[in-house]
Design a protein around this nucleic acid. Structure first.
Lengths: 342, 342
DNA sequence: TGCGTTGACGTTAGCGCTCACGCTGCGGCG
DNA sequence: CGCCGCAGCGTGAGCGCTAACGTCAACGCA
């Protein structure tokens, strides 16, 4: 220790492990061992140390620990448009799961309007010294960036298709879209439109693709989908102004576009579900109070967060190969769907 | 430097400042100076160092820097129920503002269902070594906990009333509630109900109080408000089952309760706005597509985030007294309000 | 009695930085 | 011509921890 130990430590900052040690009459190393639950510590000393710890109300510095162990116990999360319900919920669930596992989260949000791209995010998080990277709701282009950067960190992407180069976890988007589409088919609909999300999003692609496949499997025609941007504004435009032909049902790629769609249709005098049935995707907490209450596909984000974290930790510790796991969504039938009248 | 410098550094981890120094043929200190933009570096050496930096694609370790400077460049944010639009937007805006100022964010979410209270959050963030604390959308009880813990860190609370002990910033909730209420009064309504948020939330209290005051100032009676929980489910209950007396208008403390309320009213055969006008609070991105599109009070969360960050940084650097600043909300009139028919 | 073993600690070095110095050479000035 | 001063670097030490050893009694066992 240094010379001015017992008396004047310069500024009364947070107490260090040495302060605790001195107070308990042991070496700093013993304190460290107590903190980390090592064996071979006499019960009496352990208690002395613990007493000193809360007399000083000492908290270990995770910064110093990170420097010494080269493990920050921190996971970096890149998340696209976290104002959206899905990404935000996933992030929250992940944060909660991470905390119980002793990990902290650093999230880097990318808005479409900000020009701070995924590159900047990766650099930012690497600088922060995270132990792993997780990407939520990525665009196709994100993966190229990730591959190019080659951080050397374990990386997991939340997407519904496996990837040869990274770990993946997701709610099964394909199954969800099939659920929605087959529900409409079973009700008797033959002309089923789709309002897709931006097709540079994996989730949007998956939903569009499985909608199409389900229609074809039923011997129905897949009219080219309308490509939206996830917003209720866009759904409104479609409902208000687009030519819907002889369609009797619409599968919207998320609840917000479904909401806007219903608004637009209603203004035009088209009733839901009497004239047109509408299915959404996500099950927003408010979807049950839309007018009419929305039939939609529910994703269990809490479970997704837990699953994601589990895979990330496996990747940090083991790092054998690339894993892929999925969670099954469920269909929630409410009042925005009905059999067609014609 | 240590003996095995030039050849075998044990494991090819991230390069350190010494690797850069060696490659540029200077001392580590010179590299540090270049990194921090110190003067008194010859232009030629600066360039050599910069070249070495991106040949090695070196990124400084913010962990080591934090340990050395005792400044983590990190702000800890405690946020209540971040699935809600308001708190989530504030958090995002704060994150974005913080990043451009060179700060990172550690957020600790408290859900009502998790028992991880604010105490746990404070300890967690202090352990992470944050430079300041920020509390978003707090309950009354949170402040007691904060005061009790006495972290010694600069602390800012997002609430509409000044506090003698901490910095505060907020959207002016009182002004917002007055805006909503006076709008209804000006339309000619005399019996104006209020569905409040949980009264242990500062924001809920402020809105309730100013609704009341505005009514009294206009010589109207303030019927005791219904106390809700922010959810559309609750709004639905009220709309569907509560006795509304001879009220012709309702001011809901947030958009979600307004949405549920309209749903409930509609099911009961009460039309909005013909029979009852409804005003919300928040201006959710989807509120313009509710049926009918919702009249509501908009809060500029981006500006709030920027303001909050500015005050926090002032607190970290200066720390004189406690400041309080507010942002003004605006009323967005849409179709859920109209003059009463009687 | 001698010696290995083990429990219960202490000592030292080092993680990647920054801070406070120390040192050198060169220009200027009395 | 001597000396001061400053630009332009380099040298330690130390931030709060942990990993890897060292140490030293007590104990067991042949």
């Amino acid at each position: 220790m240094n010379a001015l130990s017992s008396s004047a430590r310069p500024r009364r900052q947070r107490p260090s492990i040495y302060d605790v040690a001195e107070r308990a009459g042991v070496s700093h190393m013993t304190v460290s061992r107590v903190l980390n639950g090592h064996p071979n510590i006499r019960e009496s000393t352990r208690e002395r140390v613990k007493a000193a710890i809360d007399e000083l109300s000492y908290t270990p510095s995770s910064i110093a620990r990170a420097l010494a162990t080269n493990r920050a116990m921190r996971i970096g999360v890149l998340v696209d448009t976290p104002v959206q319900y899905g990404p935000n919920s996933t992030l929250r669930a992940l944060e909660s799961a991470a905390r119980t596992a002793g990990y902290a989260i650093s999230s880097f949000s990318m808005s479409p309007d900000e020009e701070s791209g995924i590159d900047a995010g990766v650099v930012d998080l690497v600088t922060q010294g995270v132990d792993a990277l997780c990407v939520i709701a990525p665009r196709l282009s994100s993966l190229d960036v990730l591959r190019k950067h080659a951080t050397g960190l374990p990386t997991l992407v939340v997407k519904a298709e496996p990837d040869p180069h990274m770990h993946t976890a997701a709610v099964d988007q394909h199954a969800g879209a099939r659920l929605a589409t087959s529900h409409l088919i079973e009700l008797g609909h033959r002309r089923i439109l789709h309002i897709a999300g931006p097709l540079d999003w994996f989730d949007a692609r998956a939903r569009e693709q499985s909608w199409r496949e389900e229609l074809i499997a039923a011997g129905l025609e897949a009219i080219p989908p309308t490509i939206g941007d996830w917003t209720s504004d866009f759904g409104y435009e479609v409902g208000r102004f687009h030519d819907l032909g002889d369609a009797t049902a619409v599968f919207a790629a998320n609840d917000q576009m479904a909401l806007g769609l219903i608004h637009g249709l209603t203004e035009r005098g088209i009733r839901v579900p009497e004239d047109i049935s509408v299915v959404g995707f996500d099950d927003l907490p408010d979807a049950r109070h839309f007018l009419p209450p929305l039939t939609t596909v529910r994703q269990d984000f809490a479970e997704l967060g837990a699953l994601t974290l589990r895979l990330i930790i496996e990747a940090i510790e083991g790092d054998e190969g690339t894993e892929h796991e999925m969670i099954q969504p469920t269909l929630i039938v409410r009042e925005s769907t009905a059999p067609p009248r014609r």
